[in-house]
Design a protein around this nucleic acid. Structure first.
Lengths: 175, 175
DNA sequence: TCTAGTATCTCGAAAAACAAGATATATGCG
DNA sequence: CGCATATATCTTGTTTTTCGAGATACTAGA
C-alpha cells in the first residue's frame, strides 16, 4: 500500500517558493480558510462517528474499541487494553459484549496460544475497511464527480499527507 | 460564516464533463486513491482524538461530551443528554466531573432560569475552537507551505464541501 | 525439567449509567 | 391574578461497567 505511486505530479519536497509575488495576504486567507474548513471536516467526521455509535447502540467504550479494531486491524486483548488504557479484565467483558452482538470474533493466535486475536467481522451494507455505512461512499463519489482530474490529484495528495501528519501527531502525543 | 466567499473559482454546480477523453480509468484510479487516503485521514483523526482523550485522562463518555461541546458550542444538559442518548441524571454528574476539572463551566440561561448552559472553558495551549493541541496547527501550516495558492484553493473548497457532506450524512443517520 | 515471564480470564469492590421521582421555573387559561 | 400543566435540572436507589488483584494456561530460557 505504501509503495503506491505518488498520485500528484509535483514532488512537495520543498515549498513552491517561486510564486511569491508578494501575495502573502492571499495565502494567509487560504490558510485560515483551510483551518476553518478543516475543523468543520473534523467536526463532520466526529458527528458521523457519533451517529454511528448511536446507530449501533454501543456505549462509548465499546464503540471506541470497535472503531479501533476497524482502523488498526485485528489486535489482541492486551493490545486493546494498552491502547485504550483499560484494565485487561475490562477488555475481556467488553469483547464478550461485542462478540455477543456478532461485531467481532475471537481467534487463537497460531504461534502463541496464550494470545487471542480479536477482529471485526464483515458487515454487509458497510464499507469493509471502516464499517461506515455505504451512503458515505456514494456521497463522496458524487462530490468528487465535480472535480477535474488534476484537482483530484491535489486532493488525493493532500489527504495522504494530512493523514500521515495526524497519525504522527497522535503517536507523538500518546506517550 | 456560511456567507464567506467561495474560495475556489470554479462553480462546482456540475461535473467538469469537458475533459472526458476516455480517461475513465485514470479517474477511477483517483477515486480509489481518495477513498483510501480519506480513510487514512479519518483514521489519523480518530487516533488523534483517542490520544487527546488519553492525554486529558477522561473516560470515553466524558471526552465525547467535551468534544461535542467544543464542536457544537455551548449546550444545555438536556441537549447533551438527547444528543448522547444519556439519561439526564447521568449528564448531571458527567458535567459535575468535567466542571470539577475546570474543563467546562455552568451558567444560568438569561431568559429561562430552569435552563443551564454548559460551555467549554478556554484552554491555554490549545486551538480555541477545537481544544486540539497547538502542534497540530503548526504541523498543518508546515504541510500547506508546500502547496501553491491554486492548489490550496482546491483543497479548501474540497474541505468545505466534504465537511458539509459528512455533517449531512450524520444528521440523516441520526434519526 | 524447572523457573520466570507473558497473556488472558475470573472475582469482589468502586465507579458510572439508568429509571423514576423531587424541586424549581415557565406558560397558558379562566 | 391564581392555578394547572409543562419543562429543565437535580437527587435517590438499582443495574451495568470498570478496576485491581489474583488464578490459569502457555512460552522461553537456564
Amino acid at each position: 500500500m505504501d509503495g503506491a505511486p505518488d498520485t500528484a505530479g509535483s514532488d512537495r519536497s520543498a515549498p513552491p517558493a517561486g510564486n511569491g509575488d508578494g501575495a502573502g495576504r492571499s495565502r494567509d486567507h487560504l490558510y485560515l480558510a483551510i483551518q476553518t474548513d478543516g475543523q468543520r471536516l473534523a467536526a463532520g467526521l466526529i458527528r458521523l462517528l457519533h451517529a454511528m455509535s448511536i446507530g449501533l447502540d454501543l456505549n462509548p467504550s465499546d464503540f471506541q474499541c470497535y472503531a479501533l479494531l476497524r482502523i488498526e486491524g485485528p489486535m489482541t486483548p492486551g493490545e486493546i487494553a494498552h491502547s485504550m488504557k483499560l484494565a485487561t479484565g475490562s477488555v475481556t467483558v467488553l469483547i464478550d459484549r461485542l462478540e455477543a452482538r456478532g461485531l467481532v470474533e475471537r481467534d487463537r493466535h497460531p504461534d502463541d496460544r496464550r494470545k487471542v486475536i480479536v477482529r471485526p467481522t464483515e458487515m454487509p451494507g458497510t464499507v469493509p475497511a471502516t464499517g461506515a455505512p455505504l451512503g458515505i461512499r456514494d456521497a463522496m463519489l458524487d462530490l468528487h464527480s465535480r472535480y477535474s482530474e488534476s484537482e483530484l490529484e491535489v486532493i488525493a495528495d493532500w489527504l495522504a499527507r494530512a493523514g500521515r501528519t495526524l497519525t504522527e501527531l497522535a503517536a507523538g502525543a500518546h506517550r
